[in-house]
């Protein structure tokens, strides 16, 4: 029977900036973006520890890690990396954000206030070519995870579809803060796609308390590199 998560919404609260940052109103249409996306298996217990009870795990438990490079946007170039827990919401596929990083302060502010992610500042190296791609994600403590796609094969873009992404957004409430679940969906208009069958996920330095490493890859399922237009929109409450 369904195996629900056991993480509280409070465990995902972030500190809101003292002043609401000055960023352009959402949605931002970001043409020419490139996404590196990888699905991999993780241990079910660590996934359940981070999954809110509205969601249930799949069997086997898996994560989705995606890095998007936006060369242009209303806030200038920015990159974003998200680690999401593969799950089911009301029996339907979903992905819940367990950790997220961006390298752009305005994208960070918009993420925190409008959609729950990205919610941490860090650095993201991103390289993509016709035959290979690579991303290295780091926070203030150093490198967390590296994804390497050594051999890309072009596929028909219509074969790809990505589930909606859900996150906890921190909102002010009665002088304090509380978490509310929000959904972002239909953000990706895929233009070109490739798969990589020998993708590697590596952990260049140990950060044993970071979600990026606690949810460690046990087995890569599939990986794709996608050229797309990304609409960075505000999250909405689930129906």
């Amino acid at each position: 029977m369904p195996d629900p998560g056991r993480a509280s919404h409070e465990s995902y609260l972030v500190k809101l900036p003292a002043e609401r940052a000055d960023y352009p109103p959402l949605p931002w249409k970001c043409a020419g973006a490139t996404m590196l996306n990888v699905y991999f298996e993780v241990r079910k217990e660590v996934l359940l520890d981070r999954l809110p009870p509205e969601f249930c795990r799949t069997s086997p438990a898996y994560c989705r890690l995606f890095v998007i490079d936006h060369p242009e946007s209303p806030v200038g170039p920015f990159r974003e990396a998200t680690l999401a827990l593969g799950c089911r919401l009301n029996m339907m596929p979903a992905a819940f954000v367990a950790a997220s990083i961006t390298d752009n302060p305005k994208a960070l502010a918009a993420g925190i206030f409008e959609r729950g992610y990205p919610n941490t500042l860090g650095t993201i190296e991103f390289e993509s070519g016709r035959t290979s791609a690579r991303a290295l994600i780091a926070d203030e403590k150093g490198p967390l995870v590296e994804v390497v796609m050594p051999a890309l094969q072009t596929i028909e873009p219509s074969r790809l579809a990505y589930d909606h992404v859900d996150a906890i957004r921190t909102v002010e409430s009665d002088g304090g803060t509380r978490g509310e679940l929000v959904i972002t969906a239909r953000e990706l208009a895929i233009e070109r796609a490739a798969i990589c069958k020998n993708t590697r996920i590596e952990y260049p330095a140990e950060h044993s308390r970071s979600a990026w490493q606690i949810l460690q890859c046990r087995n890569v399922i599939s990986a794709q590199l996608v050229n797309l237009t990304r609409t960075f929109a505000a999250g909405s409450r689930p129906q």
Partner: peptide
């Protein structure tokens, strides 16, 4: 059906 819905079918996560 509920049990089946929590299986990891290939259609969703492995483009093939």
């Amino acid at each position: 059906f509920q049990s089946a819905a929590h299986l990891l079918g290939l259609g969703g996560i492995y483009p093939s």
